[in-house]
Amino acid sequence: MDLKQYQDVWVFVECFQGQPKDVGFELLGQGRLLADALKQKLCAVVIGKDVDEGIKGATAYGADIIYAVQGNEYANYSSDAYGYAFLELCARYHPNTILIGATANGRDLGSKLAICLNTGLTADCTALSVEEETGNVVWERPAFGGNLYARILCSETRPQMGTVRPGAFKKPEKFQNRQPVMIREVIHTKEEDILTKVIDFIKANDEAGVKLEEAEYIVSGGRGLKGPENFAMLQELADLLGGTVGASRASVDAGWIPQTKQVGQTGKTVSPKVYIACGISGAVQHLAGMTESDTIIAINKDATAPIFDVADYGIVGDVFEMVPAMIKEIRVSRNLN
């Protein structure tokens, strides 16, 4: 395999019902760093029945080239149709690197592409860089529930591929007036080649207020909160900061708060400006979802709790005293009562 024939960094801008997901834009930010290091172009791939919003987003977040494939068969994700369209693009343009969001569909697509292209796929990367001499991407990822990190290379085959969890990286700044090269490819997947068909869809109840992955301020509660009623004070603090409430798995499992609020390895990955952990011990599985936050504040009764190892500011104290005091302090400073 002549690796040099493979050029450019591709980002899959996944859309749901025509709306691009943030993770695609987060990846355009990372993809730009890789593309610059490799001295190659940054390309976005948009597949769907409606591709306009995806193209708009990919333009604003800095793609040099946008490949778009449009068709009725792409209204819903299917491994077969999306896989076929993506593989056709690969056959025509030979990408060097492919980044995909680690959503349910993204992981599925990544697996399909890797097998068909006879190449490697690294899952859930949390840091990406380029080995200068070889042009290999160094994929860094947690395993063993966050207890161990590995650096993984795919040095013999191209494209080199990785998935990244939503929220693991921040969205880059938007560009104004960028004019990427637009390439619309006509690719249709035969009806009989699509083995799975979505016949109905039940939308999940929308979270009220700010979404966890998008919040700039998160006040998270753990088992130390003692009961569901005490999440009200976390909500109040979050509202005052303009943010939202998160939780550890212990409080989700106890039924105090819905699973959509869970932060961590089996929950959401978040990287807000400020993450306030209240009554959370800091198990590795929890840390796996929040250590990328800009500033971490921990409130815990136990001075030896591991959460203090990742916190920037720590308060060894009782959440039932500290959280009300913080609420009061903000209210007073803003002349609210």
Binding site: A114, N118, G120, V138, L148, Y149, A150, I152, S155, T157
Partner: peptide
């Protein structure tokens, strides 16, 4: 196609 090049335990600042 993938190779684990190295492993490390997360450094806690």
């Amino acid at each position: 196609p993938t190779r684990v090049k190295s492993t490390f335990t997360p450094k806690r600042q």
